[in-house]
Design a protein around this nucleic acid. Structure first.
Lengths: 129, 129
DNA sequence: CGCATAACTTACATTTATGTTAGTACTTGA
DNA sequence: TCAAGTACTAACATAAATGTAAGTTATGCG
């Protein structure tokens, strides 16, 4: 829960209200959001698969990030009334429109990230289906 | 001061080590970094002018953000041995290379930010001198 | 002397983001 | 009956980011 008023929140609103770049960063800047975007770029995924593909994130945090992305309109959540339950997440058109943004962020990182900070995987260029 | 070990930090390293996009976001994602980048895009600025142009940020935080950007190689800090002191900050070549990244983040935000979150100013397209 | 200026630093306080653990409802299959 | 699977939620705990207020150093100026 966020405070109703604080300099911290006021500053966030001030910046997101005045700066388009900051607004975009706010939507994609959560710890796990890039990873989620990359996965959903290849098509819809159900919750359990998303979770298994991200073993380091806890359930609560994954759900939090998904909820935020949903309320920001980047992904949609579709519930299939089955047993056991099935919930699929996928990019909305708005989410898909991030493709060039994601690619340029990825390209810049690939170009400039020092080797010391690199591990094995390098995200390939994204082509959303 | 950061903890020497925590799941939080481990996850940050894991993600920045594996995902170029997350690495880029990490460099530009601080609260005041977009605003700083926009200002320095028009040329070097001394600390006091930067500070005056960002009345909402406190000294400590501004310095923190500048120090991080400096240690990430995005800006450089030049001290003129005068009294009173004069310190100028400016984009490095690496910082300047963010121009297309900044522009696409700005374009996407300008296109998709809901009116309700907009204030008066909209950052123009950036052309670094 | 006493004040002003610049670019900070220090100690402290608060807010926000992230993480841990256990528990829920429902049904199928062994 | 009992475990397993699914997609969560709740209560709690910690780490990190951000903010506040005052102090520092050095010198020029009135």
């Amino acid at each position: 829960m966020r405070k109703q008023s604080s300099t911290n929140l006021e500053n966030e609103l001030l910046i997101n209200g005045n700066c388009d770049m900051a607004y975009t960063l706010d939507l994609i800047g959560g710890r796990w959001k890039p990873s989620i975007l990359w996965r959903l770029a290849y098509g819809a995924m159900r919750y359990s698969d998303l979770r298994r593909s991200l073993p380091a994130v806890s359930e609560r945090i994954l759900i939090l990030q998904l909820r935020e992305m949903e309320s920001d309109g980047l992904i949609s959540r579709k519930v299939y009334p089955e047993v056991p339950p099935r919930v699929e997440y996928q990019l909305t058109d708005l989410g898909k429109s991030l493709e060039p943004v994601i690619n340029i962020l990825t390209d810049w990182g690939a170009e400039n990230r020092p080797d010391s900070e690199k591990r094995k995987v390098r995200c390939p260029v994204l082509t959303i289906k």
